[in-house]
Design a protein around this nucleic acid. Sequence first.
RNA 1: GUCCCCAUCGUCUAGUGGCCUAGGACGUCGGCCUCUCACGCCGGUAACACGGGUUCGACUCCCGUUGGGGACGCCA
Length: 471
Amino acid sequence: MTLRTRFAPSPTGFLHIGGARTALFCHLHTRRHQGTFVLRVEDTDTERSTQEAVAVILEGLHWLGLSPDEGPFFQSHHTQRYLEVVQELLQAGHAYVCTCSKERLDALRERQRENGDKPRYDGLCRELHLPADPQRPHVIRFKTPREGETLWEDRIQGAIRISNGELDDLILVRSDGSPTYNLAVAVDDHDMGITLVIRGEDHISNTPRQIHVFKAMGWEIPDYAHMPLLHGSDGAKLSKRHGAVSVLQYREEGFLPSALNNYLARLGWSHGEQEIFTRAELEQLFDISALGRSAAIFDQAKLLWINGHHIRAATPEQLLPELAYQLTRLGVEPPPSPETLATILPEFQSRAATMVEMAQKCRFLFIDSVQPYEEKAARKHLTTAMRDPLAALAATLETLPEWTIAALESAFQSTLETFHLSMGQLAQPLRVALTGCGASPGILETLWMLGQDKSLNRIQAALDHLAARQP
RNA sequence: GUCCCCAUCGUCUAGUGGCCUAGGACGUCGGCCUCUCACGCCGGUAACACGGGUUCGACUCCCGUUGGGGACGCCA
């Protein structure tokens, strides 16, 4: 049987890093086994589901390169089908009408909690055979077997068994006539021919409920693989309201999708001592059978390291759009030409852990003035003693026939000799003049990237700055 | 509270009874390289939660304790 998996987000908010990891694992495992990856939007909660959330989730998946082979399908389009299944269940005696009020249910749960019991429906309407009277508010519940236990061989967790006595009669159809999650999931997983359900560990408790629906309908039960959750630095599950941010936020912060995928894959999974993986390698190597069973904590520091690695490994062309984007966010408008960016980009690849950082570090090339200087750097390096050497260097640079690294180097060297200066003694003041701060790529490369006009202007500006400080 | 799951350096992990005086990576600390900042390179720091078994021998198997997490909705 060929593998069919699905990723099933609910559109009640953005796609966060934990959801992205689930989607990634599912996608990777499916690729590895030449299966089909289906995307299904679980929007049975019409109150909380929004179109905006759907769009944002799709965008997040697309950015990570996790686009589905089939879908997106929407559960809200399958309502009729779910209700048909419920009719079958009702007729076969696997479901029943329940008229218990929410108030009664709340009171019941409170009492059970006080007694130290597990809160659950007591089955008051279970044997009443109430009619589905449209005039009287009611829900439809599944008649969960009271005896026995439900067990499955989880592909990640191993054997899991839960006695049916732990379960209550879940609601299949709400009083407004809409189907609920557990019904919809079971029906769709069957209808879509899903053979392997890969999802978060937080769904373990739903699995026996869904298996019961499968059994009642006489359907073949899929395999299940419940992956360990992602935790925040406090050790608690990452969720929308707890520490997790949208994956698109990572794009804004200058992370590469290849890096995020690489990092996420290493959370719970490993392949020997390899840390860096390309997407192609992951699709070749990743398998849920190699997953660990314990939750992992999200570590931004390691993500940064991996992102830096992917930035260094990328070609300038690959990074170009991202750099242009980040530069405009920093107010460099319009962004420099692709040719210009491709020329300077290699100088910054080993100097940035994120594309935001890269934009910040090369921004000086594209602005009109780098003043005011970073105070500490200016105070330390831009001293009056440097006036003559800088002026002399400027004079030499002005007459340079060609603006090449080699030409710049000889001009620089001759100035050093004339004034008996060491490399650093001249490079640092010049660096402050050119960039406004004390750190940049090599000084010759910096001059070269900046170009003759801007370099001369900035040296002159620095000399003016020094003159202004003179009494 | 009840049920389910988990447990190796701060973090991610390797380890499937002897190869482990526990390996790698991030971080951190020190050093090298060096015109600055990075990159790179070298080195240090740091862990098998605890208690019982099983065994000639346990990080590895079993039980318990403790700790952590998850689930207990007319949410998904």
